[in-house]
Write a protein that binds this DNA or RNA. Structure first.
Lengths: 221, 221
DNA sequence: ACCGATAAAATTGTATACAAATCCATCTGA
DNA sequence: TCAGATGGATTTGTATACAATTTTATCGGT
């Protein structure tokens, strides 16, 4: 029986952060069309807040490449082309490879135990076939690796990619068919961490990314 | 007497963008110490603007990993450890390798001509020994490559690294001793673009990064 | 009908006002 | 002396007001 809870991403987020998350997901899921203009006033009415937090959320969206703010003109949604998404898998693969290498080197004993626990939970949800939960713990598993690298830049960029990836595919629908396959890939990664084998971890991470790309509907290069 | 107006090299930047650039450079050059708190009111007085643009600049600084904003507490400067900077060279190397590969594939004829022109200017300033000008055209040369990848995320991340790198070494002092060496490395990259040879470009870019790391005082792994 | 000029409306940019949270010096009681 | 309480000062978070710019609608002349 599993007693441990999956730690929530955060308890209470600030207003701009919430707006950012909401708008980001809406954009990535296509609820707001590329090219559309985000009018401050409209978002204000929609979420019943003033313009100040809305503008701050826009700043964050711009720096994550989701909108383009043209001075005195407004904020426009940037669309991701198929090429952009395919590129992203390549960029993520390169950094995941570096991340696991550093994480193996720099991971503390406690961090390893958290990773082990995350894997166990993953196994649990795979057996129960709960795809939605799997998606959550999957993100958590990777976050633990990012965190263990002790490098903020890497963490931030990889987290962005993770969110993009999560949103640009019909997650829970697609993941169910691949639960066992995905679990095994994480098992390979976990084993490499257990053995503190950097090269094995790199190979496992690269394979995981390539398979993820394939599962998302992209043929491999 | 009013004569013809010379258009500025770059369009006038917005107030928050200027604040962001100024604060970013101050932080990277150590004028603002790591751990220091950026008080909104103080920045307002210093630049004689209101809090709104200051807060927007803070947002940008946070997403570039230069400050950490703790809700209801304030903005604190994040210091870069020697490990952080060494890591950054590794991260940059990985993406520069991808960038030149994509750039060779995707570069237009006009973009190639711009790169050629940039190299020529670089050669000119090397002969004149103008290290400061070299630094500028050097950044421009790499920007042309980033731009040719047609990938916004890659452009943004690499631009960040470029600015970090530029600021975390005593640029003009150090570069003078290496002008010829640096020019040759760019020549190798340019040649690979001319030949549209992806592998050669990758190798040249990787060597360029490794040498840059060494010139910045880091021994190679 | 079309084009440009012009004015009104809408939108963004900046400043300021007010609310909420935090910080900090002082006080109290053991 | 010191831990904790307390209240004022400071600082941040949000709302709103005003200024500058852009967009839209209207109008007049050709």
């Amino acid at each position: 029986m599993i007693t441990t809870r999956i730690p929530p991403v955060s308890a209470t987020l600030s207003l701009p952060q919430n707006l950012f998350n909401q708008l980001r997901d809406d954009i990535l899921q296509g609820k707001i069309a590329p090219g559309a203009k985000l009018t401050e006033h409209r978002i204000c009415k929609e979420y019943n807040v003033s313009r100040t937090p809305v503008r701050e959320a826009f700043q964050k969206l711009e720096l994550d490449g989701l909108i383009q703010i043209i001075p005195n003109r407004g904020a426009f949604v940037i669309g991701l082309s198929r090429q952009d998404i395919e590129d992203m898998y390549e960029l993520r693969k390169a950094y995941e490879a570096i991340a696991v290498r550093w994480a193996v080197e720099r991971m503390t004993e406690q961090e390893f135990e958290e990773l082990e626990e995350a894997y166990d939970i993953m196994e649990f949800y795979t057996q129960k076939g709960e795809a939605e939960k799997m998606l959550q713990i999957n993100m958590h598993f990777h976050q633990l690796i990012y965190s263990a690298t002790k490098n903020r830049m890497l963490q931030h960029v990889l987290t962005s990619y993770q969110i993009y990836t999560k949103n640009t595919k019909v997650s829970s629908e697609y993941i169910r068919a691949y639960l066992d396959e995905v679990l095994d890939e994480h098992w390979q990664i976990f084993l490499a961490f257990k053995a503190k084998d950097k090269d094995a971890a790199t190979q496992a991470a690269i394979r995981h990314m390539e398979n993820g790309k394939r599962r998302a509907g992209f043929d491999l290069d």
